[in-house]
């Protein structure tokens, strides 16, 4: 056991450094995808609530398809499909083909997947904001955009955070799927280290612990965020009125 733990050292012959570089790639993809997912989700949620029938149906197709198909297949379809489409467009416009970098592709593809789930989470949260809160703002003559940014979004944040916290954890774990398309993130780097050194348990458990630490820190962070977002909630007392 002692000998295999040495394999985790940061500098070669230890593989620790390789794992940390791969971890950094995983985190960048997760953060980027989550961010894109939030932007898509917010637009999608407002589209689903206030959009016209065509927009609503298109968003319905998007969220249903993404949630019914395995992420792995979506990643392959989007990865090949998007690069293909983009290169064809570039060729038509007279530019050279380009190769999309793994990180960018991963961010975009996982972001599109995250966006579908975020749409549903945020839609539910926006709908759960009491109508009176929005009415009071309208009655004071707030323009619609101000109502959204100053009243609806801050109020729904507390309702959306548990779902968003879950979604962020899914984002961190879904980065592992990029391993299957050959992108060198934490899980793939772990497998390479493990199969080279034959110390399977050491590396897989080490990687598992890293993911677990990310999960625990995120859970703690989101819980704090939620407590802040719900600062105006009624005090929870035993009994009640």
């Amino acid at each position: 056991m002692e000998s295999t733990l040495g394999l985790l050292a940061l500098s070669p012959p230890g593989w620790g450094g390789t794992l940390l570089v791969a971890l950094w790639a995983s985190i960048r993809i997760a953060v980027g995808a989550f961010g894109i997912g939030l932007v898509i989700g917010l637009a999608g949620a407002y589209g689903k609530i206030y959009g016209g029938p065509i927009l609503r149906d298109c968003l319905g197709v998007y969220t249903t398809m993404v949630r019914a198909l395995p992420e792995l297949i979506l990643i392959l379809l989007l990865y090949f499909g998007l690069t293909d489409l983009m290169n064809r467009a570039l060729l038509v416009m007279g530019y050279e083909r380009i190769q999309i970098s793994g990180v960018v592709a991963g961010i975009i593809v996982l972001g599109v997947v995250q966006g579908a789930y975020a749409t549903e989470i945020l839609r539910g949260a926006i709908l759960a904001v009491p109508a009176g809160q929005i009415e009071a703002a309208k009655a004071m003559g707030m323009p619609a955009r101000k109502v959204a940014s100053r009243i609806t979004l801050p109020t729904m944040l507390g309702l959306a955070l548990p779902g968003l916290s879950n979604l962020w954890l899914i984002a961190t774990k879904d980065t592992a799927l990029m391993a299957i398309v050959g992108f060198n993130e934490l899980t793939l780097a772990t497998r390479q280290a493990a199969s080279t050194t034959k110390a399977f348990f050491t590396f897989f458990i080490a990687a598992g612990l890293i993911y677990l630490v990310i999960t625990l820190i995120s859970t703690w962070g989101f819980a704090r965020l939620e407590r802040w977002a719900r600062r105006g909630d009624p005090p929870r007392q035993a009994g009640g009125r």
Binding site: P130, G132, Q133, E135, A136, T155, G158, G232, D233
Partner: peptide
């Protein structure tokens, strides 16, 4: 309003 509708946050 009847329900006050103060912004809770």
């Amino acid at each position: 309003f009847q329900q006050f509708n103060l912004w809770t946050h």
